[in-house]
Amino acid sequence: MAFAEFPVQSLMYITNRPELVFTEGKGSWLTDHNGKRYLDFVQGWAVNALGHSNEGMIQALEKQARKLLNPSPAFYNEPMLKLAQQLTDNSCFDKVFFANSGAEANEGAIKLARKWGRKHKNGAYEIITMDHSFHGRTLATMSASGKAGWDTIFAPQVPGFPKAELNDLASVEKLITDKTVGIMLEPVQGEGGVIPATREFMQGLRALADKHKLLFIVDEVQTGCGRCGTLFAYELSGVEPDIMTLGKGIGGGVPLSALLCKADVASFEAGDQGGTYNGNPLMTAVGSSVMEQLTAPGFLDDVKAKGEYLREQLLVLTKEFGLGGERGEGLLRALVLGKDIGPQLVEEAREMSPVGLLLNAPRPNLLRFMPALNVTREEIDQMIGMLRELLKKLA
């Protein structure tokens, strides 16, 4: 079927898409409508933690689809309870609320913090967030984000999100007032350019939160679920947040997210929070399979090892082409290019033949790598080889 025959005109425009339609995927590979294969180092922006068409996820979907899809979030269901316990057993948190997307989870975190502030801090509602941060595309999460230009697109913004600088503790402290209820950040800014929060900064935020009786909130929509080499990125700094959000990897490709908190923060009352599909057994059964695979013996050690191997190979390219270096945690990494050739590299990588390469450039001067956590070293080598060929032309 030729691309011109697909009814693309029926879709609302939201972004520029290339003229290809993906039809199949397996592991680190996608296939388009012409049969061309692509090595996928984007994986839905870190969504497909276990790659495309993971067998464990497929089995969970098939089994649950024949039993129960959605009894309503007003009732308990078995996969919901199982996944909630898996998350609390493997984290520092006590309570879980399931949603469908990272933005929804973050919206829930904002609501929970404001509810807690009303109950325990005289109505405090402001949440200090970071410049260049990304928390989602709802009105509140866009307002919480520090993405350039987002303060005017759908103005007026939702108030209550003063912006500090990542890794600058003084910039956070000077924003604290009697209206402040919490501090929220990504342990690694993904859309901002794969910029990790330092261990010292994370520990300093925990101390600041304790000192001023604030909530420490981590947005782990992109960094959680093994992406950074530990199950959750907050573990890298040896801190315990009060609230955490998960998305992307927790569903491994299906729409699932979660809001987690400590028991003494769980302040919602009946009617405060909900959602038609939240915690439905079909999605949570898949999430449970993802968690089983992520917590299997040796899996996260393998992610750390492959993250280090990818780092080493990116440093080889840096030295070879005089680039600006690399940064990141685990298998969330960036190559700093030193010049604004990122979008051109992305396009030319996709157009390579006979095999294409899928990359992402969240900033014009860098590439972001988010492969499946079970990517092989051979696939990392293949990606590096393909990128080397492109850099010979463009760098």
Rank of each mutant, 00 (worst) to 15 (best):
E104N: 11
T376A: 11
S10Y: 09
T15S: 14
T318E: 09
G182W: 03
G149V: 01
E235G: 00
E186D: 11
R114V: 05
T245V: 06
V336K: 13
P7R: 11
R350Q: 15
E126Q: 11
A109V: 15
A270C: 05
N77C: 13
P297A: 14
V239D: 10
E24G: 05
L387Y: 03
E19I: 01
E165R: 10
K147I: 08
V303D: 07
E348Q: 15
T15V: 04
T198R: 11
D219H: 11
M244W: 00
T223R: 12
V290A: 06
A155F: 02
K26H: 14
L83D: 11
V375H: 15
P343E: 03
L30G: 07
G193P: 03
T295N: 06
G108H: 08
E19K: 03
T138Q: 10
F201D: 10
S10T: 15
L294Q: 01
G226Y: 01
E351P: 01
A361E: 06
D302F: 01
V96N: 14
T177P: 00
K115I: 07
T152Y: 07
E200N: 06
L61N: 10
K121R: 08
N365A: 14
L331A: 12
L11P: 00
G287H: 04
V194D: 08
F161K: 04
N16V: 05
G25H: 07
P362A: 15
D302M: 14
T15K: 14
S237Y: 14
A361C: 05
N278G: 15
D40N: 11
F232P: 01
G108N: 10
T129D: 02
D151Q: 12
K121Q: 07
H132I: 09
L394H: 13
G249P: 02
I217V: 09
